[in-house]
């Protein structure tokens, strides 16, 4: 009887995880698709200025109102998703690849190379993250790409650490020894046995980090170190509208809500990916 309940409970948990994956994974895919198809979805030209309709409140023909140059806020939020989300995705992909590669080399190879690369990562970790990113972005004269590079500089050590610890955990497993005895070379072993078995925690961290990266890129843009005007980017849109927070709050609320919703969606999607990949589930 007890066993039956356990099996039933397991089924309920499995179904719940499946349902969550469908909802949050679907929402994340929807957001990415929206960003990819943004130019076709905007009701107005997001860069066209019309001072006669400046700072119109939401409603009527402009669902989210207009900014101080009369540009449609909905169109700018939609087109802004492209810069914000794709730069965050690019950033997460870059740090996952670089940090992951460093972590695999350190964890698998060990020895002096591991000590050296880990001390380098310690140096990067020792800096206050955002301050270091501001310094790097300033030196590189701003721009979304430079902001992404600046954030990549401070983010890769986390991935290197996670990957290294995972590799160190599994490299002494008997199945790795068995693969060696099967004649698999180092690269084949890494590709076939190491990477697939450490991918779970790294992918979960990466998906959860998409939200954080969106906020950090928006933060740098808010400080004037990200996208340059007139590029529509959620952080820079908030920065441009901050003086109108009391008189025309929709100018700052529209991109702010877009950031909030996107971050929540990616965080929930990351959480669900963790549930799916966790073998205990």
């Amino acid at each position: 009887m007890e066993e039956k309940i356990t099996v039933r409970e397991q089924k309920i948990v499995k179904n719940r995880t499946k349902y969550k994956m469908m909802v949050f994974g679907g929402l994340a895919v929807f957001v990415i698709l929206m960003a990819a198809l943004a130019p076709y979805l905007t009701p107005y030209d997001p860069y066209e200025q019309d001072l006669s309709i400046a700072l119109q409140p939401p409603g009527g023909s402009h669902l989210l109102g207009t900014d101080r140059y009369g540009r449609d806020m909905l169109s700018r939020v939609i087109i802004g998703s492209q810069t914000t989300i794709f730069s965050a995705l690019f950033l997460v992909a870059a740090v996952t690849c670089v940090g992951g590669a460093v972590g695999i080399i350190c964890g698998y190879h060990g020895g002096k190379l591991d000590s050296f690369l880990m001390r380098v990562s310690d140096i990067f970790l020792a800096f206050p993250g955002m301050v270091f990113a501001i310094a790097v972005a300033s030196v590189m004269n701003g721009g979304v790409m430079n902001a992404a590079v600046a954030l990549a500089c401070i983010s890769w050590p986390k991935y290197a650490r996670i990957t290294r610890s995972q590799v160190m955990m599994i490299k002494n497993m008997p199945y790795i020894a068995a693969a060696k005895l099967s004649g698999s070379g180092t690269w084949k072993m890494i590709g076939k046995h190491v990477v697939p078995n450490i991918a779970g925690p790294v992918v979960v961290t990466a998906v959860l980090d998409i939200g954080t990266m969106i906020m950090e890129i928006a933060g740098l843009s808010f400080l004037g170190l990200g996208a340059a005007p007139p590029t529509a980017e959620w952080g820079s849109m908030m920065s441009n509208g901050r003086s109108m927070l009391q008189t025309s709050p929709w100018v700052i609320l529209a991109p702010g809500c877009a950031i909030f919703l996107t971050v929540v969606i990616f965080n929930l999607a990351g959480d669900t990916v963790r549930d799916v990949l966790d073998p205990r589930e």
Partner: peptide
């Protein structure tokens, strides 16, 4: 050499890649 010498490990489940 691995064609001549092979090994059987203590924990059988751990000696196979869980994803293969």
């Amino acid at each position: 050499l691995y064609g001549e010498v092979q090994m059987v490990f203590q924990t059988p489940q751990d000696s196979f890649d869980p994803r293969c």
